[in-house]
């Protein structure tokens, strides 16, 4: 492996670290986007296409665009509210935000 890689990648500890961090962040962003897309698809299909016809009507397409923007807005409101609450809660109880996050996902107990 090093035999092939060494020519184009000198790979110092710093390089290896940077490569791992980059890949980690890319995959995390991708996974997050995938969930969002799946959710938008699920909710907007249900809302905008109550009776599927032989093709998408222009009204349905407009609805889908609006629905998508709306869902993302809602996501952002939920995120802001959740993080805000988790932060204030953690100050109150003296835990850190991450303990709250764990509570939120039902990971504790």
């Amino acid at each position: 492996m090093a035999l092939f890689g060494s020519s184009n990648a000198p790979a110092s500890s710093e390089d290896v670290k940077a490569a791992i961090v980059k890949q980690l962040q890319q995959e995390a962003a991708l996974a997050n986007a995938r969930i969002l897309i799946a959710k938008v698809n699920e909710h907007c299909f249900e809302r905008c296409i109550p009776a599927p016809g032989s093709s998408l009507s222009s009204g349905e397409q407009t609805c889908l665009s609006s629905c998508m923007e709306k869902y993302i807005s809602l996501w952002n409101v939920a995120s802001k509210t959740y993080v805000g609450r988790a932060t204030s809660e953690s100050k109150k109880v003296g835990q850190d935000i991450h303990a709250m996050a764990a509570l939120g996902t039902g990971n504790s107990e």
Partner: peptide, 23 residues
């Protein structure tokens, strides 16, 4: 990153639940 991801998961869940109730 794991913590960030965990928070995002919760927000995805919240958006799902609150979409049904609010929109």
């Amino acid at each position: 990153e794991a913590q960030k991801s965990s928070i995002q998961q919760t927000v995805h869940h919240l958006a799902d639940v609150c979409w049904k109730k609010c929109v």
